[in-house]
Each structure stands twice: as structure tokens, then as C-alpha cells.
Design a protein around this nucleic acid. Sequence first.
RNA 1: UGGGGCGUAGCCAAGCGGUAAGGCAGCGGGUUUUGAUCCCGUCAUGCGUAGGUUCGAAUCCUACCGCCCCAGCCA
Length: 557
Amino acid sequence: MTSESKPAHFLQNIIREDLAEGRVSQLATRFPPEPNGYLHIGHAKSICLNFGLAQEFDGTCNLRFDDTNPAKEEEEYVAAIKRDVSWLGFEWAGDVRYTSDYFDQLHEWALNLIREGKAYVCDLSPEEARQYRGTLTEPGKNSPYRDRSVEENLALFEKMKNGEFDEGQCSLRAKIDMAAPNINLRDPIIYRIKKMAHHQTGDKWCIYPSYDFAHGQSDAIEGISHSICTLEFEDHKPLYDWFIENLPVPARPRQYEFARLNLNYTVVSKRKLKQLVDEKHVDGWDDPRMPTLSGMRRRGYTPAAIRTFCEMIGVTRSDSVVDVGMLEYAIRDDLDKNAPRAMCVLDPLKITLSNYPEGQREVMSAPGHPNREDLGTRELPFTRTLYIEKEDFREEANKKYKRLVLGKKVRLRNAYVIQAEDVVKNEAGEIVEVICSVDLDTLGVDPADGVKPKGVIHWVSAEENVDCEVRLYDRLFDDAAPDAGGKNFLDHVNPDNLKVLTGCKGELGLASAEPEKSYQFERQGYFCRDSKYGTADKPVFNRTIGLRDSWAKEQNK
RNA sequence: UGGGGCGUAGCCAAGCGGUAAGGCAGCGGGUUUUGAUCCCGUCAUGCGUAGGUUCGAAUCCUACCGCCCCAGCCA
């Protein structure tokens, strides 16, 4: 820890004290996803918190699939979640756990409650149960089945377990208090009938424990000391504690809540994400525009950047909406330091160097990174015809425009200074080529006349380059809060969230770019080769994020 | 109008009775063969509001206001 380290957040303080005062001997946390969808940036916050705390305090963190609802869960998600957690850079303690590993024990404990008169089989239908539950302001009424004998409950629960009842026909409920102001305490359902196979336990069960009954006890079984969840579970804590106190569990875990992540211009609800996929607004869960970890990975986000972001935003109990600008800062910061540089012309304009012999070829050497010698050098063939960016040339411009202007000079990055001498236009009047002269005495030095060109532009040989496709992504939504209030988030999908450019010309080295490995295309942004589309000789590059652009800002003034 | 939370700058967030950290964004300037990076400076007389206690209050007390969560046999 350095003297400039971040101040501790409330959970770090709680843990430090618990450890110091001996309330817990070793920190044990867990990340408990339900395998019913893909992990997204919001989960990353929880993952970084739970695994990060374990690392910081020399404790352990388990990966536990909270799989109590076979109707919604699938093995496919289990695999994807494991992969994403590993990708983020974390290692869970021991084997992957499943709440379903504890179904036998949980069933035993349910029997325990029944024997002590603290649980009963209720025959109320779901609709009737809702009516008996009361409302936020009115107390509920006791179920007519609340006072069945222990023997009858035992027999009925056994029948439930044996599949002798239909789904919804009855349920096992904890006997707590139908008049409790906290609705979670109004005799919550702890076991329900679901006659379906489970991805882990197959056909062994037709009754499944509820989240409330399973979670705390699973924590206890695993010896979790601090069970960290999001704010909406705070009302469940009294119930969490009630089970722990009324059952012979091997440990006393404690629940703590923190605020989930909200990001502007983004939706992170599995339902909405799924809708974007199903209605083809995006090309799958791993579409680079998605805030899923798999989408971000394909987009070029790095685990380190996501971890930094989670560190930046802090951990508190107040609802907040983080500006995506912070996420963008985190990825730019990482990639600026670590991504090798390359040149790629997105919108090519041909340049012919009139005083450079036809057939002549030189090889320019350029650093892999301006201040990372360990990233080596790259070789750039330089020829009579080149491509530059269309927007980097103007026939006339004011002094603020620091690029190539007719009659003026500009530096070709990592190469010579050139001057635009003439323009070739097609019948439509569009510029199709610029004739330039090159000053061969300017490699690494300013022109002899001492006048240093103000601008530097990127280029690529027109004769030797990699033809590629580049996909420019913009934010998925054009509204800062697409799902706020009564808004339909689909009405705010940004129509310009993807621009596909073909015929882009990249420097030769890009042909061997590995998928998901980041490059900075100088003067433009950070890109990585797509892992799904493209061919060996025609790669597709995804733009992760553009460079900060003060020129664009200047022009918008 | 039941219960549980939360209000510090445009955003995130420290602070826990001694006179408002830090980051993102913004703004101004410097360096630069990336209009990037980097560097420097600037950015709350104010902590939801109103009272009160105190030599002193974002921190304590009182009242009020606003926002979020809870009535799945979802998690």
C-alpha cells in the first residue's frame, strides 16, 4: 500500500475490524451468479469486489452458481460465466460450487424446521397466497393450513418431494409472521414444486428451494464470512438471519449490501439484453456493442481496464449512475500504455509523389510504441503512391487545419515531409488523387528551410498494404437513460451505433494481427481484430474506442 | 399514506466535531513526428432544505423535502 492509496470503502472497513477483533478468523466471500444469462459490466463490479476483497485480505472467494430455478437456468451459461470470470483475471477457491450441491442438506434442514413447528405445507394456490399476504400497508392473514400438525406436514412434504402433487398445488412455507411490516417475513415460501429436470441434478428433484432458503445456508456450508449482495436484498436480511438462527448451520455468515452499478447510455438487465439479441438489434450476446463481458472482450476491452474501472467507481450504498466516460477513460488509459501502434487508412485518398521514382521502394522503421522500447520496431514500405485519409487533405483551409493543404507541407508520420502540388478530380468534381512532391532530406529532421510543418498525418503504401474492413462502433443508445421512467429502451437505440468501412488500407504487419489483441491505429483509436468475422487475407477490425479528439471538439465550438 | 435504504460539484467519491481529498468530464496553458499521451494550472465560501446544540457542524439533534427498493411458488 502506498501513501497515495485509495481510502478504504465501507466493506473494507468492516472486514478489517472483523479480522482485527477476531469476529472472523479468515475472510471468505463468494460470487454467486444465477446461470440464466451472460455476465455483464455490472457483474464485473461484484466480481472485482468479492474476489478483490479476498485477495486484499488474504482470504478466499468461491464461485457458486445459484441454481435453484431449473426453469431459467442452463449449462451453456455456466460455461460462459466460468470463462468470463477467468478472463477477468480471477481464480475461485477450489472447485466451482453449486447451490444444487447442497440440495440434500437443504432438504434435511427443511425437515428440521417442520419438526420444530417452524414450517408447514400450505395448499393455497399462488393467487390465494398473494391475497393472504396482504399489501404494503395492510397485514396479511394466516393461511388456513398454518396449524397443521408436524406429522401431517412431514407426510405432506414427503409427498411433495415424491411428486404426488402438481406444480403450484402446494408449497412449504416458513412459519414466521403474517403481520410483519417486512413482507419477506410473511411466511415466505421455502420449497416449491417444479417438475422439471435440473442442469446439474437431473431428475432427482421435483421440489426446489427458494433463493431465501438456499442462499444463506449455502453460505454457511461454505463457511462464507461476508455474504455480499446488492441493495435490493437488504429487506431479505432479517429472513436470511432467521434461517441461520433457526437451523443447526455450521457457521454464521453475515450479509452486507452495496449499490449495483448503473451506467449511462447503457442497459444492463438480462431481460433487456436478451431482447436486443432476440430482436436482432445486435448480433448476439457477444456483439461488440453489448455491455456483456463477452461483447466487451470482442470489442477489445481488456480485463485490466475493467478492473481499473471497478476500482475507480468505488463501492457504496448509494444508488448512482456512472458516466460511461469513466469506462472509456479506463480502456484508453490501458491501451495507450500497452497497445502497439500501427497505421491504417480508413477512407483512402491516393497520393502520388511526382519526384519519387517509379518502382523505387524504401523501408521506413517505426517504433512499435513511442515510449515502450520493449515493443520493438516495425517496417513500413514507402513507395511512389501512397494512401492518406481523405479528411487529411483540403484544397484550402484556415490556419487551424494542421494537415495537408494544396501548396502546403505536412509530415508523413515516420517518413518524409511532402507538399501538395496538384489535385486530380473526376467528372463529378471529386478529388481522386493529390500530386505531391517529397522532400527526401526530412527523414528524422526538419526541412532545411527550418520551417517545421505543423501537422503530421498517417499513411500507407498504395502498393503494399492489407485490405481490411473496419467496424466503427458508437454507443448502443443515444439517450443517457434509455430505460428510465416510462421509456421504452428500444426507442432509443442509436441508429448510428455501427459504421462498417470496407476497403480500408492497413500497414502490412496488421495481416498477422491476433484476434482480440489491441493496436492503436495512430491518430484514430484503438482497434482489435474481430474473433468472429473476417478471413486470413481480409481481416475485420473492431474499434474499441477512439482517441480523445480535441480537434473534433474545436470544430464543434 | 407499512417497512427498508440513500442524498457532498455535471458524474463517481473521501470525509465520522477543527474549518470540503482524489478521480472522470470541463476550461486555460506547456511539451510533442499521433489535434493522442504526458505536464502545469483551474474547477463546491459549499455538503437536499429549515431550524437547533457548540468557540467551531458536511459531521451531533429536530423537523421537513427528494430519490431508490419490497406485495414471484424469480434471483
